[in-house]
Design a binder for these strands. Structure first.
Lengths: 339, 339
DNA sequence: TATGATAATGCAATCGATTACGATAATAAA
DNA sequence: TTTATTATCGTAATCGATTGCATTATCATA
């Protein structure tokens, strides 16, 4: 196994000091043109590549940012990562990715690992059951900027969130305006602020548009699991529950609901309309195509990365945290009636 | 901004040498129990964390592996990454991810960046239009092991591939055995070995089962784009092409085909059966549900990571490359008739 | 010819940790 | 009391690159 070529190797070969080699390689005017040329020639010949580790150690700068998120196999998150990677790459940064698998323990270990690697900053979407935040605070205290995305946290830091209230509101409003007035809501896990916001939008739209509302209209669905939601709707139907519209907290839940309705020979959207959330890739493939609320994951990733890089490059010790809320967009498709 | 705590800080505080601190922290028996306790206590108080950069430089070992792949927003690849991350995490490794966006130039830069970061090894799925491999060879020459996955390459290295020939063969066989004998194939991009293997399987199955075959049965579809494949099938129908089964190189193409058939009022699977490839998440959601060939991406990622770690930890200079071909599995669903 | 200015390069510290080796002191053995 | 032994800790080199400062050589000027 060949060892990588170092400055010292070049210096020895040319019988000069490593400092001279270093300066010559970066075209310092201090070095004579002749020496400079000799060094650069040899470096090219031996295929010299600087050791990023040594550079990082010297400059206390790794040009690396860490990303922590709950899941990798997830359409929305993969679009976010892609956005992050785009920006990072264009600015000469690499990204280290950790998936917490929605585990707080794992998340804590991840923050430690990223700190030990001396990443220049961290982008994080906290796990569902994260309720203490000491591990993030500790990182901040060590001077490493963190930008949170998608899921809100009670930490004084920059955040890129999606307007989940607006999304829930508009989804519900759309159902109501298309003539459905007896809606139910498949809500996300309790404690996850993002899904509570969507639920809040659901409730508010009822009030604003003068549609009666009661708590029974909210059916809690835990995970992103089509089967589970299939059963929830099937159950509701068996119990004789009446409704003409469903707002699901995500597209997977919406698909489960759709399949339950189809299995029960209930026509969509004529008898019951459905609207999902996030515009997963499949949502335009299924039949009928799924009306949904689009969140621009790529944009969220790009914005988050840009904000983080800004903080990284900021000379100031203290940075006023920014909070950006991205708008959502309703995508009208087949599972709702368009008036 | 606080600076991170270093060994030197602890040493100064306790008025002892850094070497003593270092040994004490790792419980060396050379150090007296009293000193050891004092050091460990202070380290905990000041929240000391070792600088992984310095360690990496010292040991020429970063405990980091690089991953290069064409796309992040892709169901199959995201499952592969997830598998890689699982193994890497369990062995104390971090992963740096680069997406090449199917660009060879980007891929070359990525290999350079990963080498400069001195990753201990690389997992790579080459871009579609990679036809020279010098950038990978160069890395290998520097003693960094590479394991390729999913897409085959003419390089002497370990590989984890999926049995695309088998997949194509079984898909075709299934269509034929369910009574369809006039098949067409939506094939992947030319030059991509993986899709050519699937096509080979398609052809071979015809021969083995005694079904006539000619080249017109192969329709080339470039990208994973439902719209494009929608048009291809629509076109074929308009031209009066006759067929009763479609083998699509991936599920996205299959969906495009399905939609084109549905738009033309052709019943699936009665008049035309469809089988896709990769078992994307949506394939069990659409209607009818999509019969497909499942590749276990998670397994591929795990195997690739395990193989790479094996090579990383191997003491031997030369490692005999291993080639593992993972079997595929046919998932019978609604778009084909099950006899 | 001596001196100052300038150009070109080397020396050595530094980043944070590890570790071979040497040094000191205390204790035990002779 | 002297020597050998052991326990404990410090010194300094090292990983690969950068950079402030010193050094040398060269040339021009007084």
């Amino acid at each position: 196994m060949k060892q990588a070529v170092t400055l010292k190797d070049l210096a020895r070969e040319l019988n000069i000091a490593t400092s001279t080699v270093s300066r010559a390689l970066k075209g310092s005017p201090e070095i004579s043109a002749i020496t400079r040329a000799r060094v650069q020639k040899l470096a090219k010949e031996l295929n010299y590549e600087p050791n990023a580790l040594a550079l990082s150690l010297r400059h206390s700068k790794t040009n690396t940012i860490g990303v922590i998120l709950p899941e990798l196999v997830h359409f929305f998150f993969s679009t976010v990562i892609s956005g992050i990677e785009d920006i990072a790459y264009s600015r000469g940064y690499n990204i280290i990715i950790c998936q917490s698998n929605e585990s707080i323990d794992r998340e804590i270990l991840d923050t430690k690992a990223l700190f030990n690697h001396r990443v220049d900053g961290i982008l994080a979407c906290v796990s569902r059951n994260t309720s203490v935040y000491d591990h993030f605070i500790a990182i901040q205290d060590k001077g490493i900027p963190i930008v949170f995305f998608d899921r809100d946290v009670p930490i004084d830091a920059s955040k890129i969130l999606s307007n989940d209230f607006e999304g829930g509101y508009n989804a519900t409003k759309h159902l109501i305006e298309s003539g459905k007035t007896n809606l139910i809501h498949l809500s996300g896990p309790e404690g996850l602020m993002l899904s509570e916001q969507r639920t809040r939008g659901f409730v508010q739209a009822h009030q604003d548009l003068g549609i009666p509302f009661n708590k029974e209209k909210i059916l809690r669905c835990g995970d992103e699991d089509a089967q589970e939601n299939f059963k929830i709707i099937q159950n509701a139907l068996q119990k004789g529950m009446k409704f003409d519209g469903i707002f699901a907290v995500n597209d997977i839940a919406a698909v489960g609901a759709l399949q339950a309705l189809q299995a029960a020979q209930i026509s969509v959207p004529q008898e019951v309309a459905i609207i999902g959330y996030s515009d997963w890739q499949f949502s335009s493939f299924i039949s009928p195509t799924l009306t949904t609320i689009r969140q621009n994951g790529n944009e969220m990733g790009r914005k988050a990365a840009e904000l983080l890089l800004e903080e990284i490059h900021s000379k100031d010790t203290f940075i006023e945290p920014k909070s950006i809320t991205l708008p959502t967009e309703i995508i009208l498709r087949g599972t709702t009636l368009n008036k």
